[in-house]
């Protein structure tokens, strides 16, 4: 069994308007030292998944099903209090906006010390020393002085570094980063991505990076999982997803994105329509109303939910189109259009 394994994870929220199936049958596995990128648009269920793994939906209104195995331990059925003791220690999380994700009234140091002392029975003094060490490790200059600063006294990049120091303070084995660089400037984003890459190597943690930015995933991930409407629509190695993508949604994402590493194309190739509301997920394949190739599925698109099927070597695709047809569409109809003529 892998270090982290999700089996058919379902996280549903009952609301006045109906059941919101934020995560609907998600499975994947991840080893220590490896990075999984989860890509999706708003409402795809990617953030709910991450909070679900940490057990933060427990005790709320959420209906959680399936299994989450972390280092041989099942967490969905586990006692909430037990999962709490794992949180922050065995698994930790980095959030998108470090300004709102840190408490404005406590110093950065106090917040790291707090995180450390939950799981380590040490004096404040020892914890403070550890906090200073962690701040230094994530590249904050003069950590012994900055430890007493408040979050608002840090710049955006420094705040995100402090957030990472806090997450890593208890030496977690699983680190989940939810849009870790979205709120940052591009030069600072590059620094943070470098830092995360280095730290992951040092800590040998399993890293899940959740983002809408294909560039960020490509920089860090070994494997990539594309989510749409609460389900995985494509899963594979980074090369599978960028070189041989087989799902029309993945093609759409690639076509929507202007790229600096290629000649400028005259037109972007967007996906029509908008991401679905999770209260009202389209029948059949959730992507079918936006899919250009829906007419080639002989009506199955709107009536039947496609299975997630392995096409080869661990590359999984959830699509009604036959494999050969998908490959030929990619080679002949999509790929040439992504490159400038």
């Amino acid at each position: 069994m892998s270090f982290l394994e999700l089996k058919d994870l379902r996280i549903h929220f009952p609301t006045d308007d109906g059941l919101v199936k934020s995560v609907d049958g998600l499975s994947f596995s991840l080893e220590r030292g490896k990075t999984l990128g989860i890509v999706g648009e708003s409402g795809s269920g990617k953030s709910v998944t991450s909070l679900g793994i940490l057990g933060l939906h427990k005790g709320g209104r959420a209906q959680i099903g399936g299994e989450i195995w972390l280092d041989g331990e099942e967490l969905v059925a586990a006692d909430a209090e037990h999962v709490r003791t794992l949180r922050g220690k065995k698994m930790a999380m980095i959030f998108q906006d470090p300004l709102s994700a840190m408490h404005p009234f406590y110093t950065v140091g106090a917040q790291i010390i707090e995180a450390y002392r939950i799981h380590n029975d040490v004096s404040k003094k020892v914890a403070r020393k550890h906090a200073i060490e962690m701040l230094g490790r994530v590249g904050i200059p003069q950590p012994d002085r900055r430890v007493d600063s408040y979050p608002h006294e840090f710049s955006g990049g420094m705040r995100q570094r402090a957030m990472i120091a806090m997450a890593l303070s208890c030496d977690p084995e699983l680190l989940i980063a939810d849009e870790p660089t979205t709120a940052l400037d591009v030069t600072v984003q590059a620094q943070i991505l470098d830092l995360m890459r280095d730290l992951q190597r040092d800590f040998n943690a399993a890293l899940i990076i959740i983002t809408h930015d294909l560039g960020v995933v490509a920089e860090l991930s070994d494997d990539i999982l594309v989510m749409y409407g609460g389900k995985c629509v494509e899963y594979g190695t980074a090369e599978d997803i960028f070189e041989r993508p087989e799902h029309p949604y993945t093609w759409g994402l690639l076509g929507s994105m202007p790229r600096l590493d290629r000649e400028r194309t005259e037109r972007l190739l967007p996906i029509k329509g908008s991401p679905p509301s999770l209260i009202n997920v389209p029948s059949g394949c959730a992507f079918h109303p936006r899919c250009v190739f829906e007419d080639r599925t002989a009506g199955k698109g709107s009536s039947l939910v496609p299975e997630l099927v392995e096409t080869e070597g661990g590359h999984l695709v959830r699509c009604h189109l036959p494999r050969d047809q998908r490959r030929s569409i990619w080679e002949n109809e999509i790929k040439p259009n992504l490159e400038a003529s």
């Binding site: 590059a190 620094q191 294909l214 560039g215 995933v217 490509a218």
Partner: peptide, 22 residues
């Protein structure tokens, strides 16, 4: 600094990394 959506290029790419913030 712009991340490039091409996993093959991430190793070979030559990068300029600015220190610090604006």
């Amino acid at each position: 600094a712009v991340p490039i959506p091409d996993p093959k290029r991430r190793v070979e790419r030559e990068r300029i990394r600015l220190q610090g913030d604006v």
